[in-house]
Computed example of a mutant assay.
Amino acid sequence: MKKLILTSILTASILNADTIFVSNEKDNTISVIDSVTNKVVKTYEVGQRPRGILLTKDYSKLYICASDDDTVQAMDTKTGEILYNLPSGEDPEQFALHPDGKELYISNENDGIVTVVDTVEKAVISQIEVGLEPEGMAVSPDGSVAINTSETSNFLHWIDTKTKKIIHNTLVDQRPRHIEFSKNGDMIWASSEIGGTIVVVNTKTKESVAKLGFKIPGIFKDLIQPVGIKLTSDGKYAFVALGPANHVAVIDAKTYKVIKYLLVGKRVWQLDFAQNEKKLYTTNGVSGDVSVIDVDSLKVEKTIKVGRYPWGLAVIPSK
């Protein structure tokens, strides 16, 4: 009887576990974490300098920006096998998948372009000139607009996904890094790493509705460098990775006020939710680990050692 109960518990644990993928920039690997045990269960070798990662709509493949190989790799999420490479342009760093699951928008930092790839035909369908050092990339929930950040030009470039033309530019603070759409697409949140700010922009008017700065007791201002952003789907919280400040800012997404700062690992970079947004995982590059934050209590629960310089995150939810 005890054996049966134990087996049932273990089976339930396996069934309820999300699968978390982490790209390790210096090791050229992908770590796979079980969200129930919070342990690394697999490590896969991939291309050189993996940074941005994302999943296909059916979760069967993980797309990987292998930056120093100048390609996007498609990895089988069950076996870890690299199935094929997609043309990406030079030095792909971040990308975003259109809601149709077909078009992949890739920022090419060295060339000042956004490359659009048809993932079905495995072919480049457009290259769009943007500002200097393009970095962040996002596509609206309705698929009508893609937005790219240019680090040196300090712009958000709004791209019509039908015409593949820039339709608007929004000037922001120095070195914009990341863009995050709200669930319904009415707002975007954009981080400026060197500027030390977050700007919230209304996607209809393209006007700024809020601008946030950060102040952490005992931390030099120059170390507070906002990068990755995640928004809860209920519109309650925004979480912002603050880079070498080694903290995640928790923001009331309605009032735009900072509620709390959470101490995580060194040089926190990106974030993603797991367990139905009950947990938030962060990649901490310099310390080579991932922090686990409980979203309800707003407390850091655990640290998981991964590879060297973890960068991106992607999560397959449990069925």
Rank of each mutant, 00 (worst) to 15 (best):
L271F: 14
T255A: 15
D252F: 15
Y261S: 05
K211Q: 13
K211G: 11
L262E: 02
A210K: 10
K266P: 00
P226Y: 10
Q270R: 13
Q225F: 09
T232K: 05
Q225P: 04
I224D: 00
V250G: 10
N246V: 03
Y281W: 10
K215H: 04
F273T: 00
N246H: 11
K254F: 11
T255G: 13
L231V: 12
S208C: 08
V240Q: 05
G285K: 10
G235I: 09
N284R: 06
Q275T: 09
L223H: 10
Q270S: 11
S208L: 10
L212D: 07
K230F: 07
A241L: 08
T232L: 09
Y261H: 06
T255D: 12
I259L: 15
F220R: 09
I219D: 00
V264S: 04
Y261E: 01
F214C: 06
F214Q: 03
N284D: 09
I224E: 00
F214P: 00
Q275C: 05
D272E: 14
V286L: 05
A245V: 06
I219C: 02
Y237Q: 13
P217W: 06
G265H: 08
Y237F: 15
W269Y: 08
N284V: 06
V209H: 11
G265C: 12
H247I: 07
V209A: 14
Q225T: 14
G228A: 10
V248R: 00
A274C: 13
A241Q: 02
G243N: 15
V227Y: 01
N276F: 07
Y261C: 05
D252K: 14
K221I: 11
V227H: 03
F214I: 05
G228M: 07
F220T: 08
S208Q: 08
I224P: 00
V248T: 07
N284Y: 04
W269P: 00
I219R: 01
P226G: 11
L280R: 02
I216Q: 00
Q270W: 05
Q270Y: 12
L271R: 04
S208K: 14
N284K: 11
I216M: 02
E277K: 10
F273L: 06
G265F: 04
L262Y: 04
D252N: 15
I259Q: 12
V250L: 11
A241D: 02
F214R: 05
G213V: 15
Q270G: 05
I259S: 13
K236S: 15
N246Y: 02
L212N: 09
P244L: 12
K278Q: 11
N284F: 08
L223C: 09
K236E: 13
T232R: 03
V209M: 13
A241K: 00
K211A: 13
K257R: 14
N284L: 12
I251A: 03
G228D: 02
V286Y: 03
V250F: 11
N246F: 06
V240D: 01
K260D: 07
H247C: 08
D252L: 14
K215G: 03
V268A: 09
A245P: 00
K254D: 09
